[in-house]
Computed example of a mutant assay.
Amino acid sequence: MTAPLSPAPSAAPGAEHTLREIAQQPELWRRVDRAVAEARPRLDAFLGPLLADPRLRIVLTGAGTSAYAGEILRAALAGRTGRRVDAIATTDIVADPYGCLGEDLPTLLVSFARSGDSPESTAATEIADALLGRCAHLVVTCNAEGDLARAHRDRDGSHVLLMPPAADDRGFAMTSSLTCMLLTVSLAFGHLPAGGAEPLAAAARAVAEGELGERVDAFAAHAADRVVYLGSGALKALAGESALKLLELTGGAVAAWADSSLGFRHGPKALLTDRTALVVYVSNDPYTRRYDLDILTEMRAALPPGRVAAVAGRADGLPAEDTWLLPGAEDADDAALALPAVVCAQRLALRASLDRGIRPDNPFPDGEVNRVVQGVTVHPLLP
């Protein structure tokens, strides 16, 4: 018998934080929507002059899950702002600063960080300031007392956006912290309008509390020893985050891979065995969707029954069986669709962890992988 995501916390020892943090997302998104609306005058005063410059480059950055946040939003923000938008992980900026920031353009560095205490978080902002003639900073974080927030809260040219305190996940893996930061930046740049969180929250609630979530649990209960996530565009980035979540919450007991719907055939398809499960995020874009449906049909023929699932906002072209349809998300673009869709991945990873006797709040009790990364030495820039 699988446990739902919204029981009393005592229902799953070792999962109390992760259970709560997945289940709380719909309500947190509503709070974020209201908070960004209240902050709109200050946000416009900060962003307006920057976005008025046609040469502005926006760089979305973070590490791990926070890096995937930037990748999910990149194309949507480029379309919304009409400016060049790049998603570059802090880990890449720190390791290859001149390769990432060697072009001296007016830049807005948007930093996603749950804690803001990872060494690369502050180092990336310092490197950007050192290499670029004009660099402003939008810091999006869950921790008001983190190193990143404290470094930028009183600085000219910086603006700090704080998530609701409950979004600062206490569990090992980023869940509500990711989605709150994604939503905040979507709203801040006008990709989603004020009030735009409501239909997405309703879809996420169907995963967290309803029959749809039970279907995700049932899929996870298959004894797959590897899971592949596929998607296109923004949903390819979501596939990467989904694979990372499964690796984290199962302590590496389930191998996970992510790729694009077209790219998977070019070698990575060798991963498939009869113990592989596969999830395809199906785009709402009518052209891109065709490629997702093609790979979905191919994989359903290649894998045993019940091993392939589709996550979608629209039902057209999809059989009802093994399709996780997100209610009310049929008109969302793919960056917005990623918000409720990632809750499916979070729930699947949590279920897989619990079914293997792992404690998802701390899947690495020996400390070989840490909630806030350790062991990084940031070396000084060379001329």
Score class of each variant (00 low, 15 high):
residue 184 T to E: 07
residue 132 L to G: 03
residue 202 A to K: 07
residue 123 A to C: 04
residue 109 L to Y: 03
residue 192 L to C: 05
residue 94 V to W: 01
residue 79 G to K: 10
residue 77 L to F: 08
residue 160 V to G: 03
residue 192 L to H: 13
residue 120 E to P: 05
residue 114 R to Y: 14
residue 133 G to S: 12
residue 75 A to R: 12
residue 106 P to K: 12
residue 145 E to Q: 14
residue 101 L to I: 10
residue 79 G to M: 11
residue 165 P to M: 00
residue 187 L to Q: 02
residue 204 A to L: 15
residue 98 Y to E: 15
residue 118 S to Y: 06
residue 90 T to K: 04
residue 156 D to I: 06
residue 191 H to Q: 09
residue 185 V to M: 00
residue 140 V to I: 05
residue 110 V to N: 03
residue 171 G to N: 00
residue 103 E to K: 13
residue 115 S to K: 06
residue 159 H to D: 00
residue 137 H to S: 01
residue 129 D to K: 15
residue 154 D to S: 14
residue 108 L to A: 13
residue 129 D to A: 15
residue 164 P to C: 08
residue 190 G to K: 13
residue 139 V to N: 02
residue 126 E to D: 15
residue 159 H to S: 02
residue 155 R to L: 15
residue 114 R to E: 13
residue 139 V to T: 05
residue 181 M to G: 11
residue 75 A to E: 15
residue 102 G to E: 08
residue 176 S to I: 00
residue 87 A to L: 07
residue 142 C to Q: 10
residue 157 G to Q: 02
residue 132 L to M: 02
residue 205 R to G: 13
residue 127 I to W: 00
residue 128 A to C: 01
residue 103 E to P: 04
residue 98 Y to I: 05
residue 140 V to D: 00
residue 127 I to D: 01
residue 135 C to R: 08
residue 121 S to R: 04
residue 156 D to M: 04
residue 203 A to R: 11
residue 139 V to D: 05
residue 183 L to F: 03
residue 172 F to R: 03
residue 118 S to R: 07
residue 158 S to Y: 11
residue 167 A to Q: 11
residue 169 D to Q: 00
residue 187 L to M: 11
residue 204 A to N: 03
residue 156 D to G: 14
residue 77 L to N: 03
residue 75 A to W: 07
residue 200 L to I: 14
residue 202 A to E: 15
residue 82 G to D: 12
residue 120 E to V: 07
residue 195 G to A: 11
residue 150 R to A: 14
residue 86 D to A: 14
residue 167 A to E: 04
residue 196 G to N: 09
residue 153 R to V: 15
residue 191 H to A: 08
residue 193 P to W: 13
residue 194 A to D: 15
residue 108 L to F: 05
residue 95 A to F: 05
residue 184 T to D: 07
residue 187 L to K: 05
residue 107 T to E: 09
residue 140 V to G: 02
residue 126 E to K: 01
residue 183 L to H: 03
residue 75 A to T: 14
residue 95 A to V: 07
residue 193 P to L: 09
residue 78 A to Q: 15
residue 77 L to Y: 03
residue 100 C to Y: 00
residue 92 D to I: 02
residue 89 A to P: 12
residue 194 A to R: 11
residue 203 A to Y: 00
residue 174 M to N: 10
residue 192 L to R: 15
residue 127 I to R: 01
residue 96 D to Q: 07
